[in-house]
Design a protein around this nucleic acid. Sequence first.
DNA 1: TTCCTCGGAGAACGACTGTTTACTGGATGA
DNA 2: TCATCCAGTAAACAGTCGTTCTCCGAGGAA
Lengths: 218, 218
Amino acid sequence: MSHIAETAPGATGAVGVRQAQKLRTRQALMDAALRLLEHQSLSSLGLREVTRAAGIAPTAFYRHFKDTAELGVALVEESLGGLHGALRTGLSAPDPGDSEARIALTVGLIADLTRSAPAHVRFVARERHGGVQPVRRAIGDQLRLFAEEVADALGALPDSAGWPREDLLMLAGIYVDHMVMTASAFLAAGPDGEQSTAELARRQLRLVGLGRRHWLDG
Amino acid sequence: MSHIAETAPGATGAVGVRQAQKLRTRQALMDAALRLLEHQSLSSLGLREVTRAAGIAPTAFYRHFKDTAELGVALVEESLGGLHGALRTGLSAPDPGDSEARIALTVGLIADLTRSAPAHVRFVARERHGGVQPVRRAIGDQLRLFAEEVADALGALPDSAGWPREDLLMLAGIYVDHMVMTASAFLAAGPDGEQSTAELARRQLRLVGLGRRHWLDG
DNA sequence: TTCCTCGGAGAACGACTGTTTACTGGATGA
DNA sequence: TCATCCAGTAAACAGTCGTTCTCCGAGGAA
């Protein structure tokens, strides 16, 4: 029985030449789409346009996606799927009491992310409120999931320990929205405006942190 | 000399039948576009599509706009142009010291605005990061202008009186972004989720208000 | 080797796109 | 009244679009 799993499709790693090539073409489609989406929205992205940029025949598109919308959902997964653990492990580094260090680190991570994957960041910011419903929903789901993880992490920090879950989610929502807005601001500002954009983001996080510290005062 | 102004084009009110009809057609184009933009983005909005929905010939489009992008910029003006005074006069009502009342009023105004002009709100939220650069820029300019006015108003309130202008703009940025996000959240939630969305927005504004109150503490 | 699977190519379809050119007819101003 | 202006029309243009159908040929299993 167990020898079946060795050649079963969908098994992680170790796939045949056939599947590997299919994955490579699929990735080429996603890369091409992401490149084209720099100057337009997903709802205007044509199937032929993508295949042309990817270097394959238009009809081959259907072997991977039935829609450009379905391609968009795959791009959401690629853009936000690996983000959950990444930021959390990055944020677990500093001393839990040093909020200033945490703020600087957070903004730095957002800047790095935007610099290393600008197309993905732009795609998420753009299609979050975009015209393609399934993609909008996928991004909303991912960000909601991400906010829940942030809420978990916040519950372990001194400033917000013991908060009701509802309040933690409220705060996490502020942070997630602010993260997306900041990333988009980095894109809009370009390399020259990176420092001032980062400083603005840090000050805003500082103010939110103050509110957090006094949330249970009165 | 003065009698010239009576028939001069561009004068407010009192225009000939000719100009009035042109304005009506122009408005029909904008209304049709706004209706079509409920389910797509501006970058996929076709010229023929708009004229068809407006009930005029495709070529007549060029009498009013050279692009759908130019039409989009006009929609930005229509959506955000009249907003500057509206919210400010609304916010000048409550006692300057009663921040809770101000918060409730603000969220209420956003809810009203979203209910009375959902298409405009959706358009702004969607195209703020959309694929059409001139429109993106127009929205950015309008929101920046709006943020400056908010900063002015904040400078007159007790909690943030005497702040440096830079900090006032930082805070105003939080408020403006939060306003757009909240309006978009109202749209996504629909009528049933209006109350919980409003409650979430109010709690977030309460936390930001706390941060504001303690900004100059340390 | 032999058969089967399946990712990809090619051609063709009808529909739709933005734009140009020439024209109409009612409002406009002397 | 009469010449002018100009918003809107109609036809035609070359492209592009999504989609279907048919076929090819290399990879995989026996």
